[in-house]
Simulated assay, not measured.
Amino acid sequence: MSHLQSISREPRKVLEGVATRQQMYALFNRHAQAPADEHRATGGRYVGEWFEVSEGDHDRMFEILPPLFYRGDTFAMREFVAARVTSVFFALRLDGGLRHFHGYCDLADPSAIDRMRAAIIARESATSRCMSRTEKLDHIWSTTGTEFRAYADPRFTPAFLGRRIVVVYCAQQGKIWKPLDELTDAEIAAKLPVQFRHLPDIAAA
């Protein structure tokens, strides 16, 4: 099975903490470097990704354009990423307060929004703060500048083709490109903000 075939469409957290406005817009373009393949054409690279936003940015996105629909705690943006994939915003009562989230849902799937909502609530209701390895890698990808991350094209080692790669530094070779999913625990820790480096691991998001 190729790397491209393994892309998950299940709900998954791609940024730890509340995104700043700058981070939110960067996350909207999280896959701008991706190859023009089937997953990009269908929006499949985005489906399932979610992150927390501020109340101000949630409300601002509601006011930019009339929403595609508005239902209680949820509204969807009128502009689609691709096919039937669009931004969906949630205002969810968690920990005694109202928190706000953005996720990409495929509206061709009637259960997508409910599954996204349920996944966010389950993840954010955890009794202790933790991150899975996948969440750590996604946080690194989300916060790494475009000059230090890429989707490997024919300029890179053939084994890297189509994979997400990031710059790492090593004493022997200096700056090198390495597949994101092959980062060691030490390399992950070096790239994470200090407050996230020692969060306990969980098996899955």
Rank of each mutant, 00 (worst) to 15 (best):
L65G: 03
P66G: 05
S54I: 04
R84T: 15
A91C: 03
V81S: 09
M77S: 06
P66E: 13
A82C: 08
V88A: 02
E79C: 11
M61Q: 07
S54V: 01
A76G: 14
S87A: 03
T74L: 09
D59C: 03
G56L: 04
F69A: 07
A82D: 06
A76P: 07
W50P: 03
P67N: 08
G56K: 08
D59E: 15
Y70W: 14
E52M: 12
E63M: 06
F89M: 02
A91V: 02
S87D: 09
V81Y: 12
M77K: 05
F75L: 05
F51K: 01
P66V: 10
W50A: 06
S54L: 05
G72S: 15
D59A: 11
S87T: 02
W50T: 08
M61K: 00
V81M: 14
P66M: 08
W50Y: 15
S87N: 08
P66N: 11
I64M: 13
E79K: 15
E63G: 05
T86L: 01
D73F: 02
R60F: 06
S87C: 06
V81E: 10
F75Q: 11
F75G: 01
A83C: 11
W50K: 05
R78P: 00
R78C: 10
F51L: 05
T86P: 00
G72F: 13
L65Y: 12
F75H: 10
V88R: 01
D73C: 02
F90I: 01
A82W: 07
I64T: 11
F89K: 03
R78E: 11
T86R: 06
E63Q: 14
M61E: 03
A91I: 02
E52N: 06
M61I: 02
G72L: 14
I64Q: 08
F89E: 04
I64E: 13
D73K: 13
A91H: 10
R71T: 12
L68Q: 12
R71Y: 01
F75E: 11
E79D: 15
A83K: 12
A82K: 12
A91L: 03
I64K: 14
F75R: 05
F69D: 07
R60C: 01
M61F: 00
F80N: 10
E79W: 11
F75W: 12
R60K: 06
F90P: 02
E52H: 08
V85E: 11
V88N: 01
E79Q: 15
E52T: 04
F80S: 10
G56M: 05
E52Q: 14
R60T: 05
H58C: 05
F62I: 04
F89N: 03
A82F: 12
A83Q: 15
L65F: 13
V53I: 09
F80Y: 15
A76D: 06
H58V: 02
